[in-house]
Amino acid sequence: MTKSLLFIASLLFILTSCKEGSVDKTERSGEPDVYNVEDDNAKMNQAMVNAKNSIDEFKNALASDNPSFEYFTIKQKFNADGGAEHIWVGDIQLIDNDFMGIVANEPVYTSEVKLGDTITVNSANISDWMYYDDGEVVGGYTIRVIRDALSPEEQAQFDAENGLLFK
C-alpha cells in the first residue's frame, strides 16, 4: 500500500485532482498543486468519456494478474461546494465486480472523503483510470490532456520528475 501511495503522490505533481467550474490552480504547501478545469472543457470532458468507455480494459488488466502491470488507480468524481472534485483512488482491488481502493489525494473542495479512506468506487462517477504496463502509462486520459497542453520542455520535465513514460 505505501509503495502505491508514494507513486500516486509523485505522479500527481501536475494533476492531483480537478474541480469543475473554474480554471485556476490551487497551490498547497507540501502537497501537489491542483489544476482546476472548466466543466465545459471539451478535451477534458472527452478524456473522461474515453476513460468510462474503456473501463473494461482496466478491469481486464487488473484481473489478469500480469506481473508487468502495477499501480492501478481510478479517478472518481465527488460532490463539492459549487461543483465537483475528481480524486485519485489507489491500491485498486476488484471485489464482487466492484472496485475498492484507498483515497490517494488530500481533497481540497469535497468533504465526502479524506486521504487514506478505503472506499468502494462509484462506477457512475469514474472520470479516469490508469496503470503501468512495464513502466509505461496505460490510460491516464485526463493526465494526458494536461500534459499535452505543456511545451515539449515542460513535458520532459514532468515525465522526468514523475517517472512517467507515455505510449
Rank of each mutant, 00 (worst) to 15 (best):
K59V: 12
F99L: 14
V138T: 05
F13G: 05
G90V: 02
S17G: 14
D24E: 15
A84Q: 12
E70P: 02
Y131L: 07
A160V: 02
S10N: 09
P152N: 03
M130K: 08
E154W: 02
T110E: 15
V23L: 10
R147C: 05
T142L: 09
K19L: 03
V121F: 06
V113Y: 04
I92N: 13
I92T: 05
M1Q: 11
E112P: 00
G139P: 11
Y141L: 04
F7H: 13
F69T: 03
S17Q: 06
G83R: 08
L165A: 15
G163M: 12
V34W: 02
R28W: 05
G83V: 04
V37H: 07
Q155M: 03
N162V: 12
Y132K: 13
D81H: 11
L15A: 03
L164P: 01
A156C: 04
F166G: 12
D148V: 09
F69S: 02
L6V: 00
N36D: 07
T26I: 14
E70G: 14
E70H: 14
G116M: 06
G90N: 08
D65V: 01
D134Y: 14
D148I: 03
A9I: 00
F13M: 06
L11A: 13
A160D: 08
T2N: 08
R28F: 04
I74S: 11
A42W: 01
I74H: 14
V37W: 13
E136L: 05
I14Y: 05
F69L: 07
L115A: 10
A9C: 01
N79D: 13
Y35V: 09
D134C: 06
D133Q: 14
D117T: 00
W129N: 14
F58S: 05
F72I: 06
G90Y: 01
N60C: 06
D24M: 01
N60K: 02
S123F: 08
I55A: 02
D24S: 11
E38M: 08
F72C: 10
N53V: 01
D128I: 07
T16Q: 09
D65I: 01
L5A: 10
A63D: 08
V138K: 09
F158Q: 12
F7E: 10
Y131D: 06
G140N: 09
L164N: 13
T16H: 04
N36I: 00
T110G: 10
L62K: 01
A149D: 13
Q155N: 06
M100I: 14
N50P: 03
E153V: 02
P152V: 09
E70L: 07
S54R: 11
L62C: 07
S127W: 00
Y109W: 12
K43Y: 05
F13Q: 12
K19Q: 11
L150V: 09
K3I: 12
W88H: 15
Y109H: 15
S54V: 03
E27N: 11
M130V: 02
A160K: 12
I119K: 11
K167W: 15
L6K: 14
D56C: 01
C18Q: 08
I119N: 13
D65G: 01
V37T: 13
N41H: 11
R144Y: 07
K114P: 02
E153H: 03
L94M: 10
V34Q: 15
F58C: 10
N60I: 00
D159R: 08
A124N: 10
R144L: 06
E106L: 11
V49Y: 04
I143D: 15
G83Q: 10
G101T: 13
N50F: 05
I143R: 04
R28N: 09
I95G: 12
K19S: 00
